[in-house]
Simulated assay, not measured.
Amino acid sequence: MAIRTVEAGFLGRLPVLRRAEADPVLAQRKPGRRRLGPGRPIPFGIGIGPVLLVLAWVIGSATGSIDAETLPAPWTVAETAGDLIADGRLQSNLLTSLQRAGLGLGIGVLVGLVLALVAGLSRIGEALVDGPIQIKRAIPTLALIPLFIVWFGIGEEMKLIVITTSVAIPIYINTHAQLRSVDARYVELAQTVGLSRWEFVRRVALPGSLPGFFTGLRLAVTIAWLALVVVEQVNATSGIGYLMTQARTYGQIDVIVVGLVIYGLLGLFGDIAVRVSERRALSWRQTLGG
């Protein structure tokens, strides 16, 4: 009886809800109604959290709440970064890390996207590709590094393969899932108008998979830096990870923190770049994110 009463009340409100959706002015005139969505985006809101974190670090260091032997003060880290820039070590190692991460990310994105299209558009392709991808997904990258060292040595090839395989997984998972959720009506429409296989991929499949692709790309950017941190501490002779390994040997905590800050900033700016690209590519889509 209670369920019927709730259903009747909801059905009775449907005309009002439909009128509100059809009339933007009416939709805005809802005094006393609580906002359900997150609201409008805050300008530069993504920087508020990091700024507060740095502010807490400054206050903790200034008041002595944070032991300098455990975590150096921000001004000490900034001074150390200035010294590393002055002697050229920071720039050269940063450039090496950017090249490794960029190349591994680019190849991994391409591989993941191709595999997702093969598995998403063909049942045979899915049978061949999805199983191995899921197996790799369940195996941590750290567990594969000893095997990759045996197979490919300890040079740049091993480092690139580790980053590439790590990046390809989130691209594949999210793009494949989005491909499988493309509205069947679009597929039927493509068949009705007589689109070729390539036209269907270009006009329906690829645009329909973009939301999942960008979700995977955001994850892939972060994972690329995580994999870079690992491989640059395996017999590397250059890179930010190598710089941090040397600093650990000599007990230079300030240099280690400089490396961590750089990794964090690279990850943050990379995520911002992907989100900006996503907004432009998916400007037609209305979401709670704005």
Rank of each mutant, 00 (worst) to 15 (best):
T192E: 13
F213C: 02
T215E: 00
L219R: 03
P170W: 08
I145K: 08
V167P: 01
S181M: 09
R137I: 01
H176R: 15
V167E: 04
K136C: 11
V182W: 01
P211V: 08
I161M: 03
D183K: 07
V150W: 07
L210V: 15
L147T: 15
L144M: 13
I161Q: 01
V182D: 11
F152W: 04
A177D: 13
S209F: 14
S166Q: 09
Q178F: 01
A190P: 14
L160R: 11
L179R: 10
V162N: 01
K159R: 15
A143F: 05
L147M: 14
F148G: 10
P207Q: 06
S166A: 14
L195W: 04
I145D: 11
I139S: 07
R137N: 13
L206P: 00
R180H: 06
I139A: 10
L142K: 05
R202M: 06
P140R: 11
S196F: 08
V182C: 04
V150D: 01
R180L: 12
G212E: 09
A184F: 02
R185N: 13
F213N: 00
R203W: 13
Q191R: 14
R203N: 01
I169Y: 03
E157V: 07
F148P: 06
P140A: 07
H176N: 15
F214D: 01
S196V: 03
L195S: 09
I173C: 02
A184G: 09
I173G: 00
A205T: 05
R137S: 13
I163M: 07
I149H: 05
L147H: 09
A190W: 08
L219I: 05
D183I: 04
Q191N: 09
T164N: 07
R218P: 00
L189M: 15
F213A: 03
I145L: 15
G194L: 04
S181A: 14
A184Q: 12
I169A: 09
R137F: 12
V201L: 11
L195T: 02
G153D: 14
F213K: 00
I173M: 11
P207T: 11
S166F: 11
F200M: 08
F214A: 01
V167R: 05
L147P: 08
N174K: 04
L147A: 13
I173H: 00
L160Y: 09
R180D: 05
L142W: 08
V167C: 10
A138G: 09
V187Y: 13
L179Y: 11
R197P: 02
I139V: 15
G153A: 10
F214N: 01
P140F: 10
P146E: 11
F152M: 07
R185E: 13
A138D: 10
T175Q: 05
I135G: 06
A190H: 09
Q134R: 14
E199T: 02
P170I: 02
A177N: 14
A205E: 05
A190F: 15
R137G: 10
Q134D: 11
N174A: 06
V204L: 02
D183A: 12
A177P: 12
P170F: 06
W198A: 06
T192Y: 06
L217M: 06
R137T: 12
L217D: 00
